[in-house]
Every structure is written in structure tokens, then in C-alpha cells.
Amino acid sequence: MPADRILLHPRALRVLARAGALAAMLWLAPAQAVDAPPAGEIAPTVAADPRLEADVQELAHKLRCLVCQNQSIAESNAPLALDLRNQVREQLAAGRSKQDVVDYLVARYGDFVLYEPPVKGITLLLWGGPAALLLAGIGWLAYRVRRRAVESAALTALSEAEHARAQALLAGGAPGDAPPSSANRESRS
């Protein structure tokens, strides 16, 4: 099998090892990106006050980078993310509240910059959808359970004729119109 040969080839093994190392690096990358950018990148500016910087980082993690859309502006090294981080830092340092900064960015880039979309008309389905689905599921389940209960009650309830026959059987009589038992049927075939 050629696939086996490729897998066992030493060069392929080296490639695999390298791929594994790369995967590990990628996995570790987000942590590294914040702490120590690779040489040549623009070093992140950091606020002198650690509490302010913590606020900046907290906010930056909630804001989506518009260039690499699946990263927050804290994680992304795109130039725009850097600019936006600086904006956040500058405005917080100037004494604006976090909400002010969020409003500032939403006014320019829309709700898209928020990882947590606000509750409003257009997002009602998004926020209420799971609860509505859950309620619908519970309702459907309740309906099915009740209907099954009614159906099985109808099945187990005996009509008057059945009741009379059951009485006769229990009394030990041999009713003429008894259906052939399964044993009888088997012996006949």
C-alpha cells in the first residue's frame, strides 16, 4: 500500500514531526502573541498603570478584530487591531468609561465589533431562540406523553364483551369461541 510507504518514509516522519511542532506552536500562539510578539513586529504599547492595562486587555478581548474576524483585537496582530487597542487604551486613560469606548467603536464599526451582541429587535431570535426551542420541545414532549397515556388507557380498557369473556376464562370454563393458542398454531403448521 503506497500510503503505508509514505507514512513510514523517514522524510515523511520528519514532516509529520514538524507539523506536530507547528500545531503545538499555533496552539500556544495566542498566549505568546499577547506577551511577546516576534521580533520585527511593532512592540505593543502598554499603559504604565497595571490596573488600566488590565481594563484595556479585558475590553480588547471582548472586541472583534475586523481584519481577522475570528480574533479579538487583543489577540490579533493586524495593524488595525493595534490601532484599535491604542484607541481603547488612550480613551480609558483619558478617563472615559468602558461603555463609552464600546459605544465609540460600535458607532464606527457597528455591532459587529462586539463578540456579545446586544439584545434588540433584530437579535431577539438569537437571544430568545434557544429558550423558545426548549419550550417548544417541552410542550411537544408533554403533548406526546399525554396522548400516549390516553391511547394506552384506551387499549387496556376492556369492553363489556371482553370483560365477560375474561370472567369466563378466569372461572375455568372452556369457551367455544376461544381463538387458537399459539402452541396450537405451531403444531398445525
Binding site: L66, V67, P79, L80, D83, L84, Q87, R108, Y109, G110
Partner: peptide, 13 residues
């Protein structure tokens, strides 16, 4: 120069 007006216009590319 610094892209500040770009941010005001919501430029992202």
C-alpha cells in the same frame, strides 16, 4: 498619517 480619520470612518481595509 496615523489612520485616525480612517477609524472615524470605520475603515477596516
Amino acid at each position: 498619517i496615523d489612520g485616525r480619520v480612517g477609524i472615524d470612518f470605520g475603515v477596516y481595509g
